[in-house]
Design a protein around this nucleic acid. Structure first.
Length: 109
DNA sequence: GGGCTGACTGACG
DNA sequence: ACGTCAGCCAGCC
């Protein structure tokens, strides 16, 4: 489905590109912002479809799972995601992003 | 149109 | 707190 002549995937990319450095959003949040309360899975699908070039302009690493969990886990991509987030000053609590500080609806200190 | 897949989620045990 | 199970969704056969 598409609105404004763009696919859901493209809308996901446009929204994720607006996530500022040091801030993160969850798949569910992205889906909700796009009008799909339960489209979190589709959001993950969209990010997975990113090719190298797109990944360069879309801050995919700022999208995490519910509760600040890194969905990619221990995979190479998962480790890189954590590395990038840390480099932006994102704090982790027991392996999970501290959403209280970096999540949506909350200004980072 | 029908079935499968996956960077998700919330509910259970 | 952790593993499983079952819905949910868009895109691709």
């Amino acid at each position: 489905m598409s609105r404004g002549g763009e696919t859901f995937f493209e809308r996901v990319y446009l929204l994720v590109r607006q996530v500022p450095r040091g801030r993160v959003v969850t798949y569910g949040q992205v889906a909700r912002l796009l009008g799909l309360d339960r489209g979190a899975r589709a959001v993950g699908w969209a990010l997975r479809a990113l090719d190298a070039e797109q990944a360069h302009r879309v801050p995919w690493h700022r999208v995490v799972g519910h509760g600040g969990r890194v969905s990619l886990g221990t995979s190479p991509a998962g480790l890189e995601q954590r590395r990038r987030l840390r480099r932006e000053g994102v704090r982790f609590l027991d392996g999970r992003v501290d959403l209280a500080r970096h999540g949506l609806r909350r200004a980072a200190r």
